[in-house]
Write a protein that binds this DNA or RNA. Sequence first.
DNA 1: GTCAATTGGTATTGAAAAATACCAAAAGAG
DNA 2: CTCTTTTGGTATTTTTCAATACCAATTGAC
Lengths: 212, 212
Amino acid sequence: MKKESGGKGKGERLSAEQRETVLRRAALDVFLEKGYRAASLDEIIRRAGGSRRTIYTRFGGKEALFKALVTEIADRTLVPMRQDFDRESSLRENLSKLADRLLSALLSPTVLDLSRLALAEGARFPELARAYFDAGPRSAAESFAALFDLARERGEISCPDSQTAAGQFVGILRDNVYLQVFLRLRPAPDQREREKIIAGAVEIFLHGLGTF
Amino acid sequence: MKKESGGKGKGERLSAEQRETVLRRAALDVFLEKGYRAASLDEIIRRAGGSRRTIYTRFGGKEALFKALVTEIADRTLVPMRQDFDRESSLRENLSKLADRLLSALLSPTVLDLSRLALAEGARFPELARAYFDAGPRSAAESFAALFDLARERGEISCPDSQTAAGQFVGILRDNVYLQVFLRLRPAPDQREREKIIAGAVEIFLHGLGTF
DNA sequence: GTCAATTGGTATTGAAAAATACCAAAAGAG
DNA sequence: CTCTTTTGGTATTTTTCAATACCAATTGAC
C-alpha cells in the first residue's frame, strides 16, 4: 500500500555533490567487500543514504556505477604500489625498502580485496583488469625497473632487460605464501616473516643479477 | 499450459552411469567457462541433455554438484604440476625442464580457467581453494624443493630453506607476464617467449642460490 | 509380461535483486 | 516568494534462476 507521505524527512538532504561523494565511497566499500555480484544496491543505499533513484539518474544502474568507479577504485587503492627510491642509498637498501613497501601493500586487506575483485571480475570488466594492472603490478614493476636501470648504469649489476627482471621481482614477492593469503588459506605473515621473505628475494636477485 | 505428452522421446535415454559422466563433464565445462555464479543449471542441462531432476536426485542441487566436482576438477586439471626430475641430469637442466613444464601448464587454457575459478570462488568455497592450492602450486613447489634439496646435498647450491626458495621460484614464474595473461590483457606467450622467461628465472636462481 | 523405480521434459513456485514508477518534500534559480 | 528541478523514500514490476512438482515414458528386476 502506498504511504500517505512520500518523503518522511528522516534523512537529511545533501547537495548533489555531497551525495555523489558519499555514494561513491559507500559503493566502493561494498564492491570491495562483497565483490561485484554479491554487492546489492540496497546495501549501498543503506550505507550511503539517499535513494535508488539517485543511482539510476546519476549513473544509470549497477553496472554503470561499477564501471564509473573502476578507475577510482584502482587508483585510490593502489597508490602505495608506485614508489620512489633514494638515489643515494645502496641497491640492496633500496631494493629491500621497495620490496617491503610493496609486500606490505599487497598483503593489506584493502589491496587484497581489490586484487580479488580484479582477478574475479576481470573477465567481465576488462577496464577493471586494465586499471588494476596498470595502477598496481605494472607501476610497481616500473619502480623496480628504474632501480635496476640505475644500478646497471653504476655497474652494480648486469641486467640486460630491466623490465623483465622487474616483472619477475614482483612475481617473486607473489610467492606461494602470498597465494595462500589471497586464497584465505592462512593469515597474512607478520612483519618478521615478511622480512624473511624479502631478505630471501633480495638476496636471490642481488646474486642472480650479478652483484659481486 | 500443460503438454499432452510428458516425455516426447527426443533425447535418447542414457544409463545412469553414462548420464552422470556426461553431466559431470558438461557441468565442469560450464563452471570453468562461466564461473560458479554465472553458470546456470539450464545451460548445463542444455549441454548434457537429461533433466533437472537428475541433478537434484543425484547431487542435490547446484552447490552440491559443484562441490562434488571440485576435488575432481583440481586433481584432473593439475596433474602436470607435480613432476619428477632426473637425478642424473644437471641442476640447470632439471630446473629448466621443470620450469618449462610448469609454465606451460600454468598458461594452458584449462589450467588458466581453473585458476580463475579457484581464485574467484575460493572465498565462497574454501574446499576449492584448498584443493587447488594443494594439487597445484603446493605440489609444484614440492617438486622444486626436492630438486633444491638434491642440489644442496651435492653442494651445488647453498639453500638453507628449500621450501621457501621453491615457493619463490614458482612465484617468479607467475610474473607480470603471467598476470597479464590471467587477466586476459594479452595472449599467452609462445614457446620462444616462454623460453626467455624461463632462462631468466633459472639464471637468477642459479646465481642467486650460489652456484659458482 | 508386469510393475515399481528412475528418467526426460516441462511447468510452476519462490526468492533475490535489479529496474522502474510515483509522490511529496526540499533545494535552488529567478 | 514562486516555480521548476532534483532528491528521498517507498512500492511495484521485471528478471533471473534455483528449487520443486508433475506426468508420461522408459528401463530393468522379477
